[in-house]
């Protein structure tokens, strides 16, 4: 009886997300609490900040982004929560 060779094949990760590049890697990498257009792209419809593992933002830019969003919220330009 030939020895059945069962090699443990690496279990393929079920959800292989295409490595998206950080949207702020290009020239427009200046994050400012005043330009609400870009900030609103990284906020969910309930007004919460989208985690970087979903928005594929680099860690450094995600820290700047969350600081800018919190500043915009403090001066009333962005809501804390959207009912």
């Amino acid at each position: 009886m030939t020895q059945l060779k069962i090699t443990k094949e690496a279990v393929r990760k079920p959800f292989q997300k295409k490595r998206k590049s950080c949207p702020f890697s290009g020239s427009k990498s200046k994050i400012d609490y005043k330009d609400l257009k870009t900030l609103n792209k990284f906020v969910s419809e309930r007004g919460k900040i989208i985690p970087s593992r979903i928005s594929a933002v680099s860690a450094k830019k995600q820290r700047e982004l969350s600081k800018a969003i919190k500043r915009a919220r403090y001066i009333g330009l962005m809501p804390y929560v959207v009912k």
Binding site: R73, I75, G76, L77, M78, P79, Y80
Partner: peptide
Amino acid sequence: LKSLAYEINKNKKAHY
């Protein structure tokens, strides 16, 4: 005179 995203002591709009 911008409208605020939430009320700040009873003001709906504010001068920035």
